[in-house]
Design a protein around this nucleic acid. Structure first.
Lengths: 184, 184
DNA sequence: AATTAAATACAGACAGGTCTGTTTATTATT
DNA sequence: AATAATAAACAGACCTGTCTGTATTTAATT
């Protein structure tokens, strides 16, 4: 059995902790303790706590977009895939007890000068925005797939944050209904 | 000239700091320094940092709902008032450089056992939800004002968080368009 | 042997909260 | 009005704990 590399262990542990308990509630001493890594080793691989968070967000983006694509792959049409986003949200957020979005959660209470983290959030949201707009364009029946895509993205973001606040699923199901209305 | 009370000064200073730089980025030493209050005095009025935050959120709720009502009061119909929410968002969020929503910002990275803060966020969002649903019901032309109200609320929440991430106004204008589509 | 990683200690700063004595402001009494 | 008592607020020190990051030595891995 090949032991997981130090860097990977740090990223994995930090990802879990940053996501579930919050960036500001997670100290590096906890990360190294739970990852079974020495602090100096950690600083060999990462220049700062912010850089660990960046690695977390990069890994998360890859994982998240991948899972989204997997989830909606069963849909036959681009439009179906867009609507399917909400099924994915429902399944994922229910599974994490409505903990919400890693990017939303980290950007709302961010130490000053942590612009690398901010850039990751913008990157992720732009990727998702383009993904939605592309699906709608591929569907070929919407005059304004960009405008519509923006509106769907806002529904997704709103559903995530509101389900987090309320710890309930109704925002997601309501957002799906609104999405269907806008697309029909 | 009556000097503002100690408690009020703490709440006002903490409100400004919590909102603009974040709950976790604001320490009590900064609060007392900027409020010109002794720490012991602060702890005479508030049991904990969490209690200060609760006072902040209570004051904010009152202020926020008041300003919303003022802003939409120029609209002639309940429906106009709901759509007017987005104009209020645009003005307010532009003014605070898209800093976003006090409740969203605090609940996303919250120390454990701070349930009083959580309760304030739920209370605020429920109030807003009921306010929107009431407007739509008063309009008298929607069969399902509750469902529609939920959808509008999600648009509002999504517009706020996304404009914060992007530091742009397009999420708000897009959300307004979606709102109009859903209401027409 | 070279590289990587671990263990440990440290530095400086900061966190939220407590305590004691002093000062100031307000209230009550004369 | 003056004085005394009370309440509120302040100043400074202190507490325990934690934060992020650095330095050194030793151990483990390649």
């Amino acid at each position: 059995m090949k032991k997981q590399g130090v860097k990977e262990r740090i990223i994995e542990t930090a990802s879990d902790l940053f996501y579930n308990q919050g960036f500001n509630q997670t100290g590096i001493n906890q990360i190294i303790a739970e990852a079974g890594v020495a602090k100096a080793s950690m600083y060999q691989h990462f220049r700062s706590k912010e850089d660990i968070a960046v690695a977390y967000l990069i890994a998360r983006h890859s994982m998240w977009m991948g899972k989204l694509n997997d989830s909606v792959s069963v849909q036959n049409t681009p439009k179906g895939k867009v609507i399917g986003c909400f099924d994915y949200l429902l399944e994922w957020l229910n599974e994490v007890n409505f903990r919400g979005c890693g990017w939303q959660n980290i950007i709302t209470d961010l130490p000053i000068d942590h612009d690398k983290i901010r850039d990751q959030a913008i990157h992720h949201k732009n990727d998702l925005r383009l993904w939605i707009q592309k699906q709608l364009k591929d569907e070929g029946k919407y005059e304004s797939s960009e405008e519509l895509g923006d509106e769907i993205l806002i529904l997704i973001e709103g559903a995530i944050i509101l389900s987090q606040i309320q710890k309930e699923k109704w925002p997601i199901t309501a957002a799906k209904k609104a999405c269907i209305k806008l697309l029909n």
